[in-house]
Design a protein around this nucleic acid. Structure first.
Lengths: 142, 142
DNA sequence: CTATTTACTTGCATTTTGCAAGTAAATGCC
DNA sequence: GGCATTTACTTGCAAAATGCAAGTAAATAG
């Protein structure tokens, strides 16, 4: 029953990384917030090829951390819908900064170079837009 | 000799996480950019208690990724100095966003709550200041 | 009522991390 | 010069996280 590991320290960076500092969590959040994915099946199809057991495991962990919620689809019993909480949506600025760094220093696909060329103000506006969209979905039908 | 794993995809987020998406890299960078640490010994003393072999391993990986450089101390042969490159310093905005999220949602130490209460403009200014300081050190004596 | 979809679980190999101890060159001190 | 200490690691082994292939089980579709 007990499974929360003890934190490494009380630094905000370390505490955050204890939750999302693994190989997959942020990629799951990325697809949810940016592409709007909300089912196990869709997330499983992500470009990077996450293993079935790892995805299942991460979804449980993210739910425990209150970053996502899980609910059954209306009018269905075998489909589940995963949704970001506001805590989860708030991870998007982190993802944006990571993407920006990547588009500056790694060989990313062409579309992302557009982001790299934006100035900070435009990037921030873009980020805020995506977050507002998700936050709206969240509050519209709660 | 060959040890570069193939990338999971060409997404900037995934490419970045292939480099810095482990339990320790960003904590090492944090101490270097924020606390100015530059030796193996100092980094080993970080609050979170990194293992000696893991630190050694990460330093090699970060050097290969051109995020840090390693050089001998002037006037010494048994001390090495690790320095961030500009690519490494550019990771700081990511760390700032992670710290901000942590200070908003985790139980961080009191000092960091100050950061959480700043508005975005002030946080960005703070981040830029720290980066400028490190960049200056880097260019002053290259 | 059979086939397919959806969301997983299970078992096992590989990789990464954690922990304790050991090493080895350089330096400090008398 | 010689011995303790500092500095920066390496080594060996245990535990945890990830990767891969296959299997399962309830619900839905036709």
């Amino acid at each position: 029953m007990e499974d929360k590991k003890k934190a490494r320290s009380s630094c905000g960076v370390a505490l955050s990384l204890d939750i999302i500092g693994d190989k997959w969590s942020l990629l799951i959040i990325r697809d949810m917030v940016y592409l709007g994915k909300d089912t196990y099946g869709d997330l499983l199809k992500m470009d990077e090829g996450i293993a079935t057991n790892v995805l299942a495991d991460r979804l449980v962990a993210l739910e425990k951390a209150e970053i996502i919620t899980k609910e059954v689809f209306v009018g269905s019993k075998s489909k589940f819908k995963y949704k970001l909480t506001s805590k989860g949506i708030d991870l998007y600025p982190i993802i944006t900064e990571i993407m920006y760094w990547g588009s500056k220093y790694c060989e990313v696909k062409p579309e992302q170079i557009v982001i790299a060329k934006m100035d900070k103000q435009n990037r921030d506006a873009f980020t805020t837009d995506v977050m507002h969209k998700r936050l709206k979905e969240l509050t519209d039908r709660s």
